[in-house]
């Protein structure tokens, strides 16, 4: 354990392999210390938030997709008012407007945040590294079909591509198409075939053989 700080709210800072050395990292630590010592939030609240963030994962999105495929009324609510619909499943991103876009035979949706890396982290966990890369952010808005092809998604011109740039207060998820050959599957079985990339839109066809029994 580091013994650089021995007062209680220092314990929530968990160093990686090195101590912070950059000005920005030190400034961040100093700001955090001030916010806690001035009572804006407590170290315990910070720990709980970090814990909740760690527990969020793409599986949550998979559960939403599977329920939407098996419950048309829920799907309707999810597409029309995602922020409130996901509360039924025990998730909550309010006051963020959680917005779900459905892929169809004639539409493919893909999500990006060109300005930074906005992502529904509280629901889906950490975003993939490529989602934060300048390459993806700059290119998927202006040549989405080329970028999608690099991810293995080949789209004909009969499929409309809709790019959603998450520039402000909304967070997005794609509802992938239910794969063929899954008639009669339970929501749990269905959730197991949904991938993180399908929820972002960089995967279109889900592989039903990828599920481990």
């Amino acid at each position: 354990m580091s013994d650089h700080h021995d007062h209680d709210h220092a314990r929530t800072f968990q160093p990686d392999h090195t101590e912070p050395t950059s000005d920005a990292a030190l400034l961040g630590l100093a700001l955090r210390e001030l916010l806690i010592s001035d009572g804006h939030y407590t170290a315990q609240e910070e720990l709980r938030m970090m814990d909740a963030m760690q527990k969020a994962s793409p599986h949550n999105g998979a559960l939403l997709a599977a329920r939407a495929w098996t419950d048309p009324d829920f799907k309707h609510r999810l597409l029309n008012d995602g922020a409130n619909a996901i509360k039924e499943m025990g998730f909550n991103l309010l006051p963020i407007e959680f917005t779900v876009h459905e892929n169809t035979d004639s539409t493919h949706n893909v999500i990006v945040c060109t300005l930074c890396s906005c992502y529904p982290r509280g629901l889906l966990g950490m975003s993939p590294a490529w989602y934060k890369s300048k390459n993806y952010r700059a290119r998927v808005v202006r040549e989405p079909r080329t970028v999608l092809k690099e991810f293995g998604v080949q789209l004909g011109n009969d499929v409309e591509v809709r790019v959603h740039d998450s520039t402000a207060e909304l967070r997005y998820m794609v509802l992938p198409q239910r794969p063929r050959g899954t008639e009669g599957w339970s929501a749990e079985q269905l959730a197991a075939v949904v991938t993180r990339d399908a929820l972002i839109g960089t995967q279109r066809d889900l592989d039903i053989n990828a599920v481990a029994d």
Partner: peptide, 17 residues
Amino acid sequence: LWPDYSGSSRDRLDIEI
């Protein structure tokens, strides 16, 4: 948006403003 856009003329980009 992009004069040299090569995809479908129906392709859209939705953005929060």
